[in-house]
């Protein structure tokens, strides 16, 4: 088992076109995003603003739950979790 991240299409040019990446382990959302950026440094700009916070135009889900309903970037991860990064889109 491992923890996976689903990469949205606008970010794939920074991840060698891969739509899913897996990481052996991670403690929190913040940790796995740091690992993603360590592996693919160009993913940092869409994820974080200049102050290092997750951008307001980015939604992050752990197993289909928005992290803002969990503990945000401090949400604890476990083996087998799936993380999605989704840009905000319009409604109606």
């Amino acid at each position: 088992m491992a923890i996976s991240i689903l990469i949205p299409s606008p970010m794939r040019r920074f991840t060698e076109d891969q739509d899913t990446l897996t990481f052996e382990s991670a403690t929190t959302v913040d940790d796995i995003l740091a690992q993603l950026v360590a592996r693919y440094p160009d993913t940092k700009r869409p994820l974080r603003d200049d102050a290092g916070n997750i951008r307001r135009s980015v939604n992050i889900y752990v197993n289909d739950e928005d992290i803002r309903f969990l503990q945000n970037k401090d949400t604890v991860l476990k083996d087998g979790d799936s993380i999605s990064i989704v840009p905000a889109i319009a409604g109606g």
Partner: peptide, 11 residues
Amino acid sequence: PVHVCELCFGP
């Protein structure tokens, strides 16, 4: 036909 900024995911 693109909807988000590739640099910051803004609309």
